[in-house]
Design a protein around this nucleic acid. Structure first.
Lengths: 145, 145
DNA sequence: TGCAATTATGTTGCTCGAAATATAAAATGC
DNA sequence: GCATTTTATATTTCGAGCAACATAATTGCA
């Protein structure tokens, strides 16, 4: 393996990490208007789709553990976006349900994806193809686990 | 824009974010043996390449700001991997220089890239191509700034 | 039945990551 | 030469992200 392989720029992991943060920065001004952080926006994407979810399901879908989700969901509950309640059938399970206030944000957020696609300068098909490639890479990486 | 565009899986930003963290998890057991975190490893990649750097240069190369770098570099100095010193010509500038101990880690880390390429299940050319694609995307995103 | 193993969530402690602000040194302009 | 602006770094504060551990409910099996 050549020496060049040890530079920062040759590391795919660094590109992914830096690009991910660059995209966070693009989202921020848009999400600031909704008083959301980026991970909170991801939680809402899930809840807008299915109205409610257990913490375990959220954890699997977002690949975040309870140490991250529990305090984050508490903050979101405090700001009225969702409600948490213990399941009656199985008291270990906490169900998270979106509130009216949380649903209202969906309309205000509806312009975000298109707006960011445009800012990226990429064609929507390029984006979808890249997305598929990354998802494939991630499944290999996750299988390795 | 169709409704499907608002699912989590359709978001390239989420794939990048989740994939980046999945790769962090792959690095962790290898970096644990060197007592390094992933961002610290990135700093060392730069310093292994150029021996010394100002904080400003590190900040630009890694796209991390002083609020992240200053405490991180202090921890790395405390563990003996590098030294920080004010420039004599311009006392605003802090130069970070790798130590002997920091250089020694380079040998012990030399197997990491190949090891991770193998675990990814991807061909090295696929990885380089994907890297180029991501870097192109990031430059568009960063131009937008 | 009863007890060990598993499961779902919560807590603690540490490290990023970044916005906002502070501080001190250097550059600039009059 | 001195005030203003710019530059480089540091500090504060908050929100993730995650490992390690704790806790309580459920399951499974002898």
């Amino acid at each position: 393996m050549d020496q060049q392989r040890f530079t920062l720029d040759s590391h795919l992991c660094f590109s992914l990490y830096a690009c991910s943060r660059a995209i966070f920065r693009m989202y921020r001004p848009l999400l600031d208007e909704l008083n959301l952080t980026y991970p909170q926006y991801l939680v809402l994407l899930v809840l807008w789709d299915r109205q409610e979810s257990s913490i375990k399901e959220l954890s699997q879908v977002l690949s975040l553990d309870s140490g991250t989700l529990t305090p984050m969901l508490k903050r979101m509950e405090a700001s009225g976006l969702l409600e948490r309640s213990r399941s009656l059938e199985d008291e270990r399970i906490v169900t998270v349900r979106i509130t009216e206030k949380g649903l209202e944000l969906q309309d205000r957020a509806s312009c975000i994806p298109a707006s960011l696609v445009e800012s990226s300068g990429l064609d929507i098909n390029q984006i979808d193809m890249l997305n598929e490639t990354i998802r494939t890479l991630m499944s290999s990486v996750d299988n390795y686990r």
